[in-house]
């Protein structure tokens, strides 16, 4: 096909949807997770570090939970071991929640955008 400024295919990009508001809301959520520049002042550095560390802890905590569930499903654990493991993970979750509150972070804050791979959590 001949390329020319008159080519109607090269008109301004078109956006077509019957659910514009819903997409605006969702795309706003996605852009909110994009990395922003970090201001080097004491408070934001502390919160930035807390966010990074807690994200990694949350990631490991979820891995541990999955592993525990798999072992429970596989019949590897006695009822006492299940109870003990469950209690330990429950306490870990509560502690992490406490730390999140302390640093003013929400569940949505604890994630990392890994580019083409997707998000960590």
């Amino acid at each position: 096909m001949e390329l020319s400024p008159e080519n109607p295919l090269m008109a301004e990009p078109q956006i077509e949807t019957a659910h514009a508001e819903e997409f605006v809301e969702q795309l706003r959520c996605v852009t909110d997770t994009l990395p922003s520049r970090i201001n080097i002042d004491a408070q934001s550095v502390e919160q930035g570090l807390a966010k990074l560390v807690l994200t990694l802890i949350e990631f490991i905590r979820r891995l541990l939970e999955k592993q525990a569930v798999r072992r429970m499903e596989g019949g590897d654990l006695s009822p006492e071991q299940i109870e003990e493991l469950g209690l330990a993970l429950m306490k870990l979750e509560a502690k992490l929640q406490e730390l999140k509150t302390q640093f003013g972070l929400t569940d949505d804050d604890l994630n990392l955008d890994l580019g083409p791979i997707g998000r960590l959590i």
């Binding site: 295919l9 090269m10 990009p13 078109q14 956006i15 077509e16 949807t17 019957a18 659910h19 819903e22 997409f23």
Partner: peptide, 8 residues
Amino acid sequence: HFLFSGPW
């Protein structure tokens, strides 16, 4: 629900 856009 779909959103199509382009050309980009």
